[in-house]
Design a protein around this nucleic acid. Sequence first.
DNA 1: CCGGCTATGTAACACGTGTTAGTTACCTGC
DNA 2: GCAGGTAACTAACACGTGTTACATAGCCGG
Lengths: 347, 347
Amino acid sequence: MRSRKPTSSDVAAAAGVSRSAVSFAFNNPQRISAGTRQRILDAAERLGYTPNTLGRMLQAGTTNSIGVLLPQRLAQVLENPYYSRFLMGAGQVCDREGYTLLLTPPLQDSVLKAIPYAAVDGFIVCGLEVDRGEVAELDRRGIPFVLIDSDRHEGAPSVEVDDRGGAAEVARYLLELGHRRLAVLSIEPGPDAAVRGYRGPLARRLAGIGDALGDFGLSLDDVRLAEVPVTRHDGYRATTGLMARADPPTAIIALSDVLAYGAVDALQELAVDVPNEVSVTGFDDLAESAWFRPRLTTVRQPIVTKGRMAADFLISAIRGEDQHPHQMLGTSLIIRDSTAKPQSLPH
Amino acid sequence: MRSRKPTSSDVAAAAGVSRSAVSFAFNNPQRISAGTRQRILDAAERLGYTPNTLGRMLQAGTTNSIGVLLPQRLAQVLENPYYSRFLMGAGQVCDREGYTLLLTPPLQDSVLKAIPYAAVDGFIVCGLEVDRGEVAELDRRGIPFVLIDSDRHEGAPSVEVDDRGGAAEVARYLLELGHRRLAVLSIEPGPDAAVRGYRGPLARRLAGIGDALGDFGLSLDDVRLAEVPVTRHDGYRATTGLMARADPPTAIIALSDVLAYGAVDALQELAVDVPNEVSVTGFDDLAESAWFRPRLTTVRQPIVTKGRMAADFLISAIRGEDQHPHQMLGTSLIIRDSTAKPQSLPH
DNA sequence: CCGGCTATGTAACACGTGTTAGTTACCTGC
DNA sequence: GCAGGTAACTAACACGTGTTACATAGCCGG
């Protein structure tokens, strides 16, 4: 039972050389004679020496790791296929460039507190408003970062999606079908967001829905809005609530596919036919949405590409190429079987 | 443009105190007078000082991070819903205990090379044979680790699944239905596994199938075996190959749900009816398998529980509770719509 | 036989932190 | 007026590494 892990000093003592020689033996072979090198390696093997990872990182000033700063707990993030796809895109770049990927959830429900505990060369920041403390903290630290699902921020690259256009397109599609009583299942802002108004992708999606409503003489005040955590079960519960009201909607616009699944769950339990009695749309176009029954009408966004570009931008920033690109990715409306004309028009 | 991130020495100089005082001001407030403490905090704020993460970790000897040592590249791992579920289970524990999760894929196609670059307090080792170099290397380093989808190894905790029993159950089910020409879609061993024989879960699953075959007077020599990487597309390709042979199977046992999806893809393209012409079974029972058409008959294993227990065991080991539990989790056969009696019996 | 070069090894510095032991200065009690 | 205690702060050590600047010895050519 060895009490302490052997260090390079121990190896040096055992081989009768200086600590520098040990370092050279491992990292700079031609800097030392073959004989002593072998003697050092033998001693290292005998003692079971392995260079300490943290010590090396501290000296090198690099960790070969990129962090993903997450707005929710790991259990919630990894339950959501959206993040799996996103991480897969980022992972492709990590594979190519030899980086590891550190998932950094909030610490004690605080994203801010989690930052100092992540040994990384840079962060991909997911779904945080730019005027929150985290962005200022990262600026202060002088550590490179990239913003995702947020707002444009000078001083850091970002990758965004045309949320406004995509949401407008799906809302306009429903309105053209004849729907007038719409409900929106939105995503609850983070735990410490307090009363501050909407920002980022959700604000843009709601604005897009507002654009479409305006074309038909309506406004956002005419739709019911429910804000819930982004899980299937919460989509189910919110929809149950919506349908219990006096004038239930004829179409439900979910701002996430996961929420749309839950909405369909609730409607099926209430024996409400989808799409003939109520239409449901999603946002993301996860792979599951094509398998889902009814096949889900939704707004496709290029999630994997988003992850890939975020990681690419971050690694460029880490390498000191000091441009701050802002990429905007397009969306497309995927029409499937969960939407139809409203039944109640004749009434 | 600050050339260098300020260090605690800079703050000490700016506040006219020693470096120790700076450390106390942050970590041990009552150890210093309120006046100088405030002066130090002011100086720190003015300079934009933040304690260096690596420096602190090196001194503390802990990273508050657990690593997941992966046998494949990140892009492949994150494409596979099996790992998403597993990571979710591990993530639940990380959330509770305040750990971050470092995904560590092979470096230059070598799992061994990746180990020294992970700054973690311990590893969850996924799907590696115990007699490979990685386990010896981790032993040498004296870093705690837990084995998953592997074999029992004294000196480290492990979480296993009753692969043999589960595979025997599904094979016996098919044989009882009357199937005799079986094919097995197995998972290709890692890139550097060389010629060494099967080990770990795959060996156990094949052994289980052998058990069932033995009950019917057959053996593993009587089934066709295809080994492919665990992606849907590879399942598709292998099945296309199997069906092109002279006497195609009437039932395909895939050792992973993902491979089963690919098998069904291929059969549908060949206009072969599932399950009436060919039965297909999977292994895992991913959520997708209940949505898949035809709904997939498969062996359920408790993936989330596996991840949770692995992380629990690891954290216990990190805290120095030196027991080495070996947990075995049960499986259950889920019979759905992708299996039926063979059609060709009358012939 | 001596100046200059190369091969080999070492001392010292740098990376940045937390903590223990030790030094002042001050106040209290007798 | 002095022993004894305490509050406030600092010097030094520890964590473990890589690398630069310097010292020593040996070789070669002139």
